[in-house]
Design a protein around this nucleic acid. Structure first.
Lengths: 223, 223
DNA sequence: AAAAATTAATTAAACGTTTGTTTAATTCAA
DNA sequence: TTGAATTAAACAAACGTTTAATTAATTTTT
């Protein structure tokens, strides 16, 4: 009874968004192809026809969903990059903070994105995400290279270091049960809710990057 | 004409394996749900009914495929772990070599595995892979912890360091185009064929881990 | 302000495809 | 001649989508 009331309230605000929210959750759980419109309609408590009425088709719903939620990805690194008052390491640290925050704040959507990237065939998203990723990679790489030129950083493999940063976060988010194992939590719980997790991940990555980059880590630590 | 001959030759050796090989390639490209039995039959040049004749069902084919190919994952770390003649760092280095070799040697199957892990719903594989992953995580973690106790390693976050190792490889293999960007290659080429890639990844990860773990990296390097 | 007209939202039912699977007949090999 | 391998055809179920009818909301007219 209470659930019904909440549902009606939520739906009255914006039915389209309600459908999209349910879609993200279902796609994350079953995959895009694995989720039928009937599943979605039932779970969102709307008629099957409403989905095509609002979005046109299943694929268009998917695209709408991506464009709506992917905005949090588009926030570029420009701001950080052009801030002259920051050292290269500080820039990297801020970028790490940004990625961890964004990725962990929307685990379901993140999962949908990852799924889509692993399906080479479907071109809808691939192109867009790749493009964004290219830009981000180049930005981070150029920051690292600048640090290397300044002799602040050791000579490293910049693109692969970027892969390590992103890859660490992705790995933690790959599977809920995997995350629970990594975090030494009970198998059933939802690890992404824990604010401690975010802190732990950022700390680890920052330390990892710092150790890898700085020529005299001991000295830097003291400052 | 030549292609047809090769196909017949390959099929005559073992038709079941031929179907499974084509299935891995298709699943990797389109996903399990996105690949129809008709797709698969056409691509493998066999009758649709043959797939059910050999495997019983689409799902059983999938399980057979996983069990057949996943063996390369099951090769445990025991051998390395119990070798007393190796230092903790050397053990980690060997483990890194092992993961990079195994993951990069079968990129298509690796992609299928990753896809499956991202689908929370389907339980077929999840349980098995999780179980294996747990064991491997614990093994690597205990090696790191031993190094910490021996005061060879700094006090780090062992499970997250493991996540960084695996995550880096996974990140590189997430998308062919992404890998080409990371490797600064032409967009069309297949990066996983390049033997230089394997070398570069292992080198990077080993250096990353070493920098993160060793208390005096400068001294260690000289030895 | 009430009634009528118009537009939007919602529904159940049916549409044509495609899905995985099975059948029954046929070819092949032992 | 017997059993396995292979085929084309048909199967029911599920898929995304559309239709036509109905209800709700909004605007226009009186």
């Amino acid at each position: 009874m209470f659930k019904l009331c909440v549902l009606i309230l939520v739906m009255s605000i914006d039915k389209k968004e309600h459908i999209m929210d349910v879609a993200v959750a279902l796609f994350a759980e079953k995959g895009y192809e694995g989720t039928s419109i009937r599943d979605l309609a039932h779970e969102a408590d709307v008629n099957i026809a409403m989905i095509n009425y609002y979005f046109g088709s299943k694929e268009k719903l998917f695209v709408a969903l991506l464009e709506s939620k992917a905005r949090y990805m588009r926030e570029r690194i420009d701001a950080v990059q052009n801030d002259a008052s920051l050292t290269e390491l500080e820039k990297l640290n801020q970028i790490i903070d940004g990625y961890v925050n964004r990725f962990l704040s929307q685990p379901a959507f993140h999962r949908v994105l990852q799924q889509e990237l692993l399906v080479t065939n479907r071109e809808i998203l691939h192109q867009n995400v790749i493009e964004l990723f290219t830009k981000n990679t180049q930005d981070v790489v150029s920051i690292i290279e600048k640090g290397v030129r300044k002799k602040i950083f050791k000579k490293v493999d910049p693109p692969l270091l970027f892969a390590s940063i992103i890859g660490t976060i992705n790995q933690v988010m790959l599977s809920r049960s995997m995350c629970n194992i990594l975090m030494n939590k009970a198998p059933g719980t939802d690890p992404y809710q824990d604010p401690e997790l975010k802190k732990r991940i950022t700390q680890h990555i920052k330390q990892l990057v710092q150790d890898h980059l700085l020529i005299q880590p001991a000295l830097q630590k003291q400052k």
